[in-house]
């Protein structure tokens, strides 16, 4: 179903590549100031039900293309995707006509236990099978292609049968979904699991990439060594900008988003980060190869 969805004209597609994550703290500022960002992304779970959040989203949607970035489908669980959760996501997709819908290559539910985090999966044939089954169900119910994001992880599996970049390509090819490449997550992973982040990005098939994420991370020290934690609480780091530039040269003009989820700054700070992303995209289009331009 991937090729069908991609060739269909999508209402509300952004004219400018770089967008920002819309958070409750910025609802009013975004609608009043209308910053020149290309599009907005929200976590749909915050708009399940009704009331003020949904009203704010309607107001923002009048001015910007929208992407729904889910965190609760738990696509990598061995159980099927929760029907009620999926039903609520479908309601939002129908109401807000987003140009992108996404979730993660991770799991957050096991039996009755639910974890508000993106837990890591082993990259095996069995995991691939589970993800594909869940993605089929989601894409059938939503009647559209979705994107899946590579996670930040703090453990890796000795039982992996392939590297993550290869796994991402496999998931996308087999299910018809696209890839949401989070370059901050690639960098965090490369530090935590000692691999070359540029090599990872180079392995991702350009035609599968539908969106790029950028965010800040934090270093956390332990007795023995340090880990990078995907905290979304600060500016995008210089190494991540470098990786983003490399990704833009490779993937062309892909919708790119700056996420900031805690210690949220003034809207202007977030918009400046998004402007920086836009400059990099434009520079790469002038000087580089736009191999992955979707349209």
């Amino acid at each position: 179903m991937g090729s069908d969805s991609r060739s269909r004209p999508i209402a509300g597609r952004p004219l400018r590549s770089a967008g920002i994550g819309l958070r409750a703290a910025h609802y009013e500022d975004v609608v009043e100031q209308r910053p020149g960002v290309g599009w907005l992304e929200v976590h749909p779970e915050n708009y399940f039900g009704g009331g003020l959040p949904r009203r704010h989203l309607h107001q923002a949607r009048e001015h910007y293309p929208l992407s729904l970035h889910a965190v609760g489908l738990s696509l990598g669980s061995t159980e099927a995707v929760d029907a009620a959760h999926l039903g609520q996501l479908k309601e939002l997709v129908d109401l807000f006509d987003p140009f992108l819908v996404s979730d993660h290559v991770s799991w957050s539910a096991s039996g009755n236990a639910h974890f508000p985090d993106l837990l890591p999966l082993p990259y095996t044939g069995e995991t691939l099978e589970r993800l594909i089954a869940n993605l089929d169900r989601v894409q059938n119910v939503l009647q559209r292609q979705i994107l899946v994001e590579n996670p930040s992880t703090y453990v890796s599996y000795a039982i992996d049968e392939m590297v993550e970049s290869e796994f991402m390509n496999e998931v996308a090819c087999a299910s018809g979904c696209g890839i949401l490449l989070d370059v901050n997550n690639v960098f965090v992973q490369s530090y935590n699991h000692s691999f070359d982040p540029f090599e990872y990005v180079a392995r991702i098939r350009p035609d599968l990439v539908g969106e790029i994420h950028l965010a800040g991370h934090t270093e956390r020290s332990f007795d023995d060594a340090t880990l990078l934690i995907d905290t979304h609480n600060r500016h995008v780091g210089p190494e991540v900008w470098a990786l983003y530039e490399f990704a833009c040269e490779r993937f062309g003009e892909v919708p790119s988003l700056v996420e900031w989820d805690s210690d949220i700054p003034d809207l202007g700070v977030l918009v400046a980060e998004s402007d920086k992303a836009q400059e990099i995209v434009e520079r790469s289009l002038v000087g580089g190869v736009s191999a992955g331009a979707a349209d």
């Binding site: 453990v155 890796s156 599996y157 332990f222 007795d223 023995d224 060594a225 880990l227």
Partner: peptide
């Protein structure tokens, strides 16, 4: 099941 090295698995 999980890889070990650097920061301890429990951490």
């Amino acid at each position: 099941v999980m890889a070990e090295g650097g920061v301890a698995l429990e951490n």
